[in-house]
């Protein structure tokens, strides 16, 4: 069974089609990275998947439930979305009150909300901040609180819509760690929408979008091996890939790789053999 399935989905914001005839699916427990430059339709994808936006045509299914008016809230409980700006998604000033918001919305009993807050904050490693003021946290911490707020609904799918775009490198690493752990340990299906190529390496599968269509798909390493093609969609290789490529162009016999350790080994070998 697929966690999310788009079948021939069209969508426009009133003008040109933003998403056209999109077929896209995410398996249960899978970790998929969606790449694309600005305006490629990747954020629209996130908003369609939990019914914030409505498709003009086609069908969207979440765990075999068709996303329509009747099932809107069933779907939203299953699919959590974390957005870009942490400041624009927290409703309460205190961490635990904000995490409770979603659980309160689905009218859970009080004791259960307490348990959910504990679970969610532990999952993102923010237990100590339970009573803190959101405004005083760092960007990465705020975004982890936002993730906890979504987790409190115990979704089976989590979509991160450029959730690391506004963070510093440290914050980005924090989020990447949390997301990876949620996927591996809590078995939550993850769709990571990003334009940081490094993050895509964490995923089982990467999808490249351009002008509302999927143009590349495969394992992250396979996608990054096609660097010329990526460039035509205004995407650049992760830094390690770029280094490997330019080393090879400069005459070193290193293989294309995205693994920093592998590259280091190859360079070391090359130097030893060369001398």
């Amino acid at each position: 069974m697929n966690a999310i399935e788009f079948r021939g989905v069209d969508f426009s914001y009133g003008g040109d089609f933003c998403i056209r005839g999109l077929n896209f699916s995410v398996g249960e427990g899978e970790f998929v990275a969606v790449l694309g430059h600005n305006g490629s339709g990747k954020s629209t994808l996130a908003r369609l998947a939990n019914g914030i936006l409505r498709a003009d045509a086609g069908e969207i299914r979440v765990f075999d439930t068709i996303l329509d008016d009747k099932h809107l809230f069933d779907v939203r409980k299953q699919v959590g979305v974390v957005f870009q700006n942490p400041d624009n998604q927290t409703v309460a000033s205190i961490v635990e009150d904000d995490v409770a918001f979603g659980a309160e919305n689905v009218a859970l009993p009080r004791e259960e909300i307490g348990r959910r807050i504990e679970f969610a904050l532990r999952a993102v490693g923010m237990e100590e901040a339970r009573k803190s003021t959101v405004a005083r946290l760092s960007g990465g911490q705020k975004q982890r609180v936002a993730i906890a707020g979504v987790l409190a609904l115990k979704p089976r799918v989590m979509i991160l819509d450029e959730s690391t775009a506004m963070l510093d490198p440290r914050g980005r690493r924090e989020i990447a760690d949390v997301v990876l752990r949620l996927n591996k340990e809590e078995k939550i299906t993850v769709v990571l929408i990003t334009h940081f190529m490094e993050e895509a390496l964490l995923a089982d599968r990467a999808v490249v979008m351009n002008r509302g269509e999927i143009v590349m798909e495969g394992k992250p390493e396979e996608i990054f091996a096609r660097s010329e093609e990526l460039l035509t969609y205004n995407l650049a290789l992760p830094r390690i890939g770029l280094i490997a490529k330019s080393l090879r162009e400069g005459g070193m016999s290193v293989k294309d790789t995205l693994d920093i350790e592998k590259l280091a080994d190859e360079i070391a070998e090359e130097i030893v053999c060369g001398s």
Partner: peptide, 25 residues
């Protein structure tokens, strides 16, 4: 712009203005 995004984030967390419970009584 913030209000718009916040609205989406609240929607995504199942807010519908209807019956809800309170964590802090």
């Amino acid at each position: 712009r913030r209000a718009d995004e916040l609205g989406d984030a609240m929607d995504a967390r199942c807010y519908n203005g209807g019956h809800r419970t309170k964590y802090k009584k």
